[in-house]
Design a protein around this nucleic acid. Structure first.
Lengths: 342, 342
DNA sequence: ATAATAAATTTACGCGCGTAAAGTTTGCAG
DNA sequence: CTGCAAACTTTACGCGCGTAAATTTATTAT
């Protein structure tokens, strides 16, 4: 292959013995041309590796095949895996996804929206920072570009939302902990997104329903270094002996990972066995939760389902022309993952 | 701002009272126009938020301002942070970086190279998969696009390499472990890249220099789930009591994290204190190593230095026209990070 | 002031492709 | 064989901008 380099579609069309408009049609949808001509084009493709210029394509198409994927913090393996999963689904659907990370900064998040506008995407799948997000910027963006939110909701923004049922998550964990031992306290940090608030409220509600006093402990710290926050907060709580119970339910796994490190350092034995000092559980089933010491009991996010539904929803939105009728929210249930820590 | 939408540079030029070629010149380099006209353009920019069409720009420019960044596995926070750091440096230099992850798959790595060709980048910064990489594909790619390798070297490929001095890393850790207790064995997995091999060889060499018998234990497992490999391998080694020493030096931190989980589960107390059963150390100073139980003693990669030098090298290469004289390799030293595990 | 230089303008072309309209060929049913 | 729709070819325009050459205008030096 590759006798001599092909400059453009004109040349390639000549080589393949087909007119340029037909070749153009082929690249937009190989099934839109007759079988015999498809064979001729593909035979030429093997001989002269030619690829249409993406910039020329995107400049002229009414709508590009680009998809923007925005996650709040790609250094969190949970989001990295989610993004990877989503990317591959879009590729399979014939789109060109690009992933962006807000790196925990609302300013960066806004810059990403600017970048996204400039690539004129067919649609965007966005997991916003949450509380720190600049609501009006995102709202304006959603007016221009078909956007589906996932993971973290912003009420009324975007054409749809796909995420987890935080209420059910916390019900699962609280009921389990209450059933198998002392009722837990809820360890949280300054909430970065609505999920955190929903989890806390669900904790209160579930504890009250079960007839227990809900006790919430908030640890200090800002930003996306959740482990650090859980660790430092844990050290403080343990050394001051201000933990009122022997069961700790963490708002999320990353916080729990930090808290476990503090427990270990302070000599607290964590687990559900008789000789243990404290039980610790989390939420999300973070990729690292299997490798904590002890392994972390948690509620797993169904991220296969979340990514699948997000992609489906956005593709449907794009096909419908961008204006979904009414904003729809989909929440997936979690599963209790019992490990050694609680 | 934003009275009415500006369609193109022609319109914007009219609004700002400057000719289109001059506006074009401005966007390519704001300092290339006279101060008075720069002010007029920027005044108009504030009123009519206009941004040049990226596709039209890139179609016509001889060389784009695009930069490709390729990492082997973005779900590893180490690479995510590295990529973020590198991205921001390129942005500061006026380029448009895009990060791609090979997701551990050589096939995917090759697809990324194809994608990269199609965006005609000014340069590429690539951390190859390593042993699994398709050398000839990468070589061919480097013929077409100015490319600097980082993190993992492929001898003779690319215009330069920037990474860590694995020899020095292992010297540091081995000398420390030998100085403070029983000489370590080296725990490795099937090597994914040359770094792993270099570390093993450095281990042998350093141990022999210190007058000890080098003992290497390899655990089974393929792919990029290093923690899993370390965990399962650790369980097997411990339960079979086939560990010959009480000091274990892991090839990398992620392997050590899995091994620590196995130790914990098997009831082995890890640490350098008198009442401990085993010491464990790693290499890289992975973001999570601070939060393992116990916290992991390791050798830190100087990833600020690596990212800075990588970017510098590539930018210099681009400015020089893409053909660096001779291939240059830069290796940075690591620092011993003493924590609780060894 | 005038000359010399720098910068901006005018004009024009081309990049590679999408896309539309009109005419031509092909495939297939009856 | 005829008829007809589907697919193709030809022709042509436009997308938004980079860029070059020739000309005019503004700035600086003398």
């Amino acid at each position: 292959m590759g006798e001599d380099k092909i400059k453009n579609m004109e040349e390639f069309a000549a080589r393949s013995g087909v007119s340029r408009p037909t070749v153009s049609k082929y690249f937009n949808d190989p099934n839109s041309v007759r079988k015999s001509t498809r064979i001729r084009i593909e035979a030429a493709l093997e001989r002269y590796d030619y690829r249409p210029n993406v910039y020329a394509i995107n400049q002229n198409r009414r709508l590009t095949k680009n998809i923007g994927i925005v996650v709040p913090f790609v250094a969190d393996p949970f989001f990295a895996e989610l993004a990877r999963n989503i990317e591959q689904r879009f590729i399979a659907a014939g789109f060109s996804p690009t992933t962006f990370s807000s790196h925990g900064s609302p300013q960066h998040e806004n810059e990403i929206l600017d970048t996204l506008r400039s690539i004129r995407p067919a649609g965007v799948l966005m997991a916003p920072l949450g509380r720190a997000s600049d609501r009006s910027s995102i709202e304006k963006f959603c007016d221009d570009v078909p956007t589906v939110l996932f993971d973290s909701n912003i009420e009324g923004v975007g054409e749809a939302f796909v995420g987890s049922n935080n209420m059910q998550f916390v019900q699962l964990s609280v009921e389990y902990l209450c059933r198998t031992g002392e009722p837990p306290i809820f360890l949280e940090m300054s909430p970065v997104n609505p999920n955190a608030n929903k989890r806390r409220n669900a904790f209160i509600q579930t504890m009250e329903r079960l007839g227990f006093e809900p006790h919430i402990v908030r640890v200090d710290g800002e930003g996306w270094g959740f482990e650090e926050i859980g660790y430092k907060g844990g050290l403080k709580l343990i050394s001051e002996r201000s933990l009122p119970t022997k069961s700790v339910l963490c708002s999320n796994d990353r916080l729990a990972i930090g808290f476990l490190a503090a427990c270990y350092e302070q000599g607290l034995r964590v687990g559900h066995k008789a000789d243990c000092d404290i039980r610790v559980a989390g939420h999300d089933d973070h990729p690292f939760s299997r490798f904590t010491c002890p392994s972390l009991t948690t509620v797993s996010q169904d991220y296969e389902a979340i990514s699948e539904r997000s992609v489906e929803t956005l593709l449907a939105l794009i096909e419908s022309g961008g204006t979904g009728d009414s904003r729809h929210e989909t929440l997936f249930e979690g599963k209790l993952v019992m490990r050694a820590s609680a």
